[in-house]
Simulated scan of single mutants.
Amino acid sequence: MFYVAPALAFFIVFVIVPIVQSVRISFYRWDGITAATPVGFSNYVEVFTNPAMREALSHSLVLLFFYAALPVVIGLFLAGLMSRIRIYGLTWFRALLFLPQILSSVVVAVSWRDILAIDGPLNETLRAVGLGSITRAWLGDFGTALPAIGGIGTWVEYGLCMLLFLSGIASIDRSLYEAARLDGAGPIREFVSITLPSLRPQISIALILTITFALRNFDLIWNTTQGGPGTSTAVPSVYIYQDAFQNRLLGEASALAVVLTVLTLVIVGIVQLALRESPDRAPRSTPEPAQAPGKEERNS
């Protein structure tokens, strides 16, 4: 207990106390300077009745597809491919694919903002191959801004998923694949019947990490579009920042933060339940066949 005490104290002071404070402030109208006024649940009512807030929550759910579903699918594909094909310089190749995950979000946002600009490399490439008609300011167009930010998130997250799945594949018993090949199973059948079920824990971890990143994402959006054009890329974290530090509405910001935290926990909990290994699917030991009565006597 003595060795755990410093970490526990750190956790309480910097995690538990701020959470409790945020929940308490969410029941007040407060600008951070003057006296706080109790308002009950009105801040939460504002979160669920304000159309802008509902739109922001819907944007976060859309980004779940780009930040969680797509990276997991791409990571599974790459991991399955690398486990079957001999690639020279595999270590460097994996490091290159994982590089977006370790870059600063601000660096990623600024780089992609330049790439997707109206005169950026992407549009220049499209013009060079005769597709100039589809060029646009990808982050400044109402129809493409949110998918463009989603694509950036996919690029950032798929490397993490790939490495998690590669580590899981490395721990799978090779004899399972050998038995499947003897039974005539092809690569796709092996992946569906052996690899995918064996990666259930890694898939669960990957989804938890990517879902959390998608719902709390702020710096990537703020440094590319700041929620624009209009409110087409606004997410709850943008409104939390604006209410808390620009509009001085700390009660509304705290209420939205609490709702976002609960939403994240609910979605993560659903994912964990869906991917939990059921007891009836757990491997069972095969009982030894019972010896026929009188067999020992006959052998003797």
Rank of each mutant, 00 (worst) to 15 (best):
G132P: 02
I134K: 11
G184T: 08
S232D: 00
L146D: 07
S193E: 03
P147C: 06
V192Q: 13
D183P: 04
T224E: 05
R216Q: 12
L146I: 08
Y158Q: 12
Q226E: 11
D173H: 10
A145V: 10
L207H: 03
G184R: 12
L131F: 13
A179M: 11
W222T: 00
I188L: 15
G132V: 04
M162D: 07
S237D: 06
L215H: 04
R189T: 11
I188T: 01
A206Y: 01
A179S: 15
L163P: 05
A179R: 09
T225W: 03
N223P: 07
L207N: 02
G186N: 15
P236V: 10
D141W: 02
Y177S: 14
T144R: 02
S133F: 13
A185G: 04
N223Y: 15
L166R: 07
S232T: 11
I172D: 07
E157K: 06
L199E: 08
I208P: 00
A145K: 08
D141M: 03
D183E: 15
A170Q: 14
G159Y: 15
G168V: 07
L166Y: 05
G140E: 03
L163F: 07
L199A: 05
L215D: 00
G153V: 13
A180L: 09
F218E: 01
A137R: 09
V192F: 14
S204A: 14
W222D: 08
T195I: 06
L163T: 15
G151K: 09
F142I: 05
P197W: 00
N223R: 13
T233E: 02
L139V: 11
M162P: 06
L207I: 03
G184V: 12
R189Y: 05
F218T: 02
E178L: 06
I194N: 11
L215G: 01
A206K: 02
S175G: 12
A137Q: 12
I208M: 12
L215A: 05
L176K: 13
P236G: 13
R200K: 10
P147N: 01
A145F: 07
A179C: 07
G151T: 13
T231S: 06
W222S: 03
A180W: 07
S237M: 15
R174A: 14
A179I: 08
L207V: 02
S232K: 01
G230C: 02
L207P: 00
R181C: 14
G153W: 14
I152G: 06
L164S: 13
G151V: 14
Y177L: 10
G151F: 15
I211R: 00
L199G: 08
G230K: 04
I194T: 11
I169D: 10
E157Q: 15
L131I: 01
V192A: 15
E178Y: 09
Q202T: 00
G150H: 10
D219N: 10
Y158V: 13
E178P: 01
